[in-house]
Design a binder for these strands. Sequence first.
DNA 1: GTCAAATTAGTGATCGATCACTTTCGTGTC
DNA 2: GACACGAAAGTGATCGATCACTAATTTGAC
Lengths: 334, 334
Amino acid sequence: MSQADAPRRATIHQVARLAGVSHQTVSRYLRQDGGMKPATRLQIDSAVKALDYRPNLMARSMRTRRTNRLAVILSSTQYFPHRLVLAASATAHERGYQLDIVSAEGGAEQRAQRIADLADSGQVDGILSLAPADVPAGGRVPVLVSGTYDEEMHSLGELADGSAVSEIIEHLAGLGHRTFFHLAGPQTFASARNRKIVYLEAIARLGLRSYGVVDTDWSAQSGYDAVVGLPDDCGVTAVIAANDVLAMGAIRGAFSRGWRVPDDLSVFGWDDDEIARFATPSLSTVIVDREAQGRDAILHLIAAVRGEPAPPTTTHNLNQVVHRESVAPPPYQP
Amino acid sequence: MSQADAPRRATIHQVARLAGVSHQTVSRYLRQDGGMKPATRLQIDSAVKALDYRPNLMARSMRTRRTNRLAVILSSTQYFPHRLVLAASATAHERGYQLDIVSAEGGAEQRAQRIADLADSGQVDGILSLAPADVPAGGRVPVLVSGTYDEEMHSLGELADGSAVSEIIEHLAGLGHRTFFHLAGPQTFASARNRKIVYLEAIARLGLRSYGVVDTDWSAQSGYDAVVGLPDDCGVTAVIAANDVLAMGAIRGAFSRGWRVPDDLSVFGWDDDEIARFATPSLSTVIVDREAQGRDAILHLIAAVRGEPAPPTTTHNLNQVVHRESVAPPPYQP
DNA sequence: GTCAAATTAGTGATCGATCACTTTCGTGTC
DNA sequence: GACACGAAAGTGATCGATCACTAATTTGAC
């Protein structure tokens, strides 16, 4: 049955007639306006139940000029933060918003154009971009880009990234590692940039050596290639990868050239992918609270949409380092 | 800037005034009704450009009683088919539909209730459920459940699953394997059911032995537990898992009890996860064309929404078996 | 009991499109 | 030139809610 043929839903006018009040009173009832006699409310209550009335959200949006819809922008290639998206979706629904998933293909400027179009279209009240994007301020609706800083210099919980990278390097240094290598991921991602900054800072602060930092994509192949491409005498004993997929590629690259992990090379990942936990060697990584990130991001966006002050970000540390088999003291080096 | 404060978009009336025609003529222009003088069309063209006019989709939906929105239902736990979802989203956009991602928490009946509510809400024109669900027919809008068969007994491309399982078993039998074990995944998923059926059929047809079939969830832990729980004398030399995550758990479980993979135990996965390709041993698996599945599913749904006959499903084989390190001939058994 | 203030309820316009129906225009035929 | 007829364009109603404003009722103070 096509929707157009379906029997129509009841409208406020029908509810009003059945309840013996005016349509405006029903509207007030729906919007919880307060100021109704209990008797009136009860009558409307039962009329609503009797007619199985539900407000037509299209009509409401049309009049209020608010859509109660938000969009999430994703870059279609690689890296789909599904836990974050599901948490974002759940949070949005809790607050009475629908969430559209929009994948933005193409390069950075194409993506920016797509976002600008969407912002301008009047179809959504706000946009959360999980893909890196340079969005000009002052559009019709708020646009939040994940991981970038707002005016108060609070990121969407990703500020805490830094401490975990520091913690990892300190741990590795404690095991005796001296020469590090960083697979940094795409530097268009704010979170990747943050981690790289903290990596460099920690290396310098602790007087360690970084053999290099490679800006990669998010693919395992890139991790593989980067490690395979290291010179034999580079002295690297520890790799810190920007995510688990890169890290798995790095481990495989090490195997392919005869390096054992963790005996010859220690590898750290990021994200705690389920598969990496069960790989051999199991991957040392960082557990990220994606649910909290998704929730925080949507709450920020909703606040921006409503013109309210930004809500407090989840305060507990989002990131937790877990130690597994892919890390060990470095081999003896004469 | 909140949307309500934003300068309003132009309406058809303003376009009409600028073009020197009536609003209805502009409406015809928008709907490509045909039958307009070229001169009129050009005038409207330039008015639309001058005012940067875009139709208000809310108003249109309200009048036409079509929302041009589709919903995808996901179960929030485990298994997020992101490639399928992105392809579905892209296809929907191509056809002028928005796609909402809705995660349905809770058990089967809660999910069914959520779907029924959504179908009844008038907010969407159609629903695609990727989560297993028992949806009563005859609601206000079409509901398509992935992997179930429509009246013509064509599934959304998952029919082809069968041949791949057959092919895997035949291959393993050719290597000398005789005793198999199947990690079947949740039997609420039609695709998992299909594979189990074909598994049992192939075992019987080839005169092989199945030590057992375990209905699991989609977690690596379940794969691990199942293999760890096998008796020493079970004789199983090949495990066929319903996805890569289960398979990785199975491999880890084998290692934990001193079985080498593939020397003592061969393992097949399903899905071709990127990480599993770079694991050691790399996982033999089945490449699934998730993009085609997502595309087909949405095209089916749109056809149903429009009351058109179902479009042909992608004909080429969606599934392709890839052979990697996790499979070898069975150990010698006296 | 009266009157003003506060509370509650009602009336009609409106959001921006499409639908159903009517009118005008243009063309060709006799 | 009158007429018929199809194409092109216009008029006003409508979708289902909220908004702005007005009217009715209740409340409270004196």
